[in-house]
């Protein structure tokens, strides 16, 4: 296969980047997208051109590192598939392929296709701890959980934190990520104690990082490599509104008799 690539090249966070075009020959249909990128880099090194920097780690669809917007879609055209699990057989011979980094004010480009996603880590940190028994290992069935609830919580927990939702959202919103992280704890009995503080703290951090707002486009759900449903966003909205409007105000340290 012969393809034409248009790749975003950017020296560093401050530099002004631009799209560069490369012709690549010798691509085989059973190469993964990242292997094709490796091939491109070998070619560039041979020509004494700086190779394209991109994030990757597991290459088996579980770590979420391989952040690339391929032909305008996060992780490319294949649904519920990370870039590393995308294969060149999904493209035609002679195809023109655009490769761009996640675009978000909260994810500054470090170099080429690599972006800094530590904003997500700070959202997770804002979620804090769960209050849990920490003695000897408890009997597994001592806290009964309805199978449907457990399954749904696991669906939320399948988020790999890759940031495709932010990249895909026309508003650059991180609501799907935050909702998945809020929900997988908020649905389980172990997560109840801090449930309402958690949703407030995590969404507050999300706002501070400079993400956009949700308009319910459902674009994130469609481009999420794990197919996480926007139903979790509705669930988080509901928890957030309860936390803000119905839950008692935190008055610790300010309680005086009379």
């Amino acid at each position: 296969m012969k393809i034409k690539l248009h790749v975003w090249r950017q020296e560093n966070e401050k530099a002004k980047g631009k799209m560069e075009s490369y012709d690549l020959d010798g691509v085989t249909p059973d190469m993964s997208f990242l292997e094709m990128m490796d091939l491109l880099n070998e070619k560039l090194i041979g020509e004494s051109i700086e190779p394209v920097a991109f994030d990757h780690d597991c290459r088996e669809g579980v770590c979420g590192a391989c952040s690339m917007v391929v032909n305008g879609e996060a992780h490319g055209p294949q649904r519920e598939t990370t870039t590393c699990q995308l294969y060149m057989r999904h493209f035609n011979d002679g195809a023109e392929i655009y490769v761009e980094p996640w675009r978000s004010a909260a994810f500054p480009v470090v170099r080429d296709l690599t972006v800094d996603r530590s904003a997500f880590d700070r959202i997770i940190q804002a979620g804090g701890f769960i209050s849990n028994h920490s003695g000897p290992k408890p009997e597994p069935n001592s806290i009964p959980i309805e199978p449907g609830v457990a399954e749904t919580a696991l669906d939320a927990a399948s988020c790999i934190g890759c940031g495709a939702c932010v990249a895909a959202c026309p508003n650059g919103s991180a609501m799907l990520f935050t909702a998945a992280k809020v929900s997988h704890l908020g649905m389980l009995p172990q997560g109840q104690t801090e449930r309402y503080d958690r949703v407030k703290n995590m969404t507050t951090q999300m706002e501070e990082e400079g993400f956009g707002s949700c308009r319910n486009y459902a674009e994130c759900e469609a481009q999420c490599p794990k197919g996480i449903s926007i139903a979790f966003i509705g669930r988080m909205n509901s928890d957030y509104l309860k936390a803000s409007l119905a839950e008692p105000v935190d008055r610790r340290g300010k309680m005086h008799a009379q």
Partner: peptide, 25 residues
Amino acid sequence: QNKKARPVDYVKKKRAAASPAALYM
């Protein structure tokens, strides 16, 4: 807020789900 959230836009854009009604609110 949304405009500030994506200062540099994509060269190539493709929508997988958003309806025109939603995009043009």
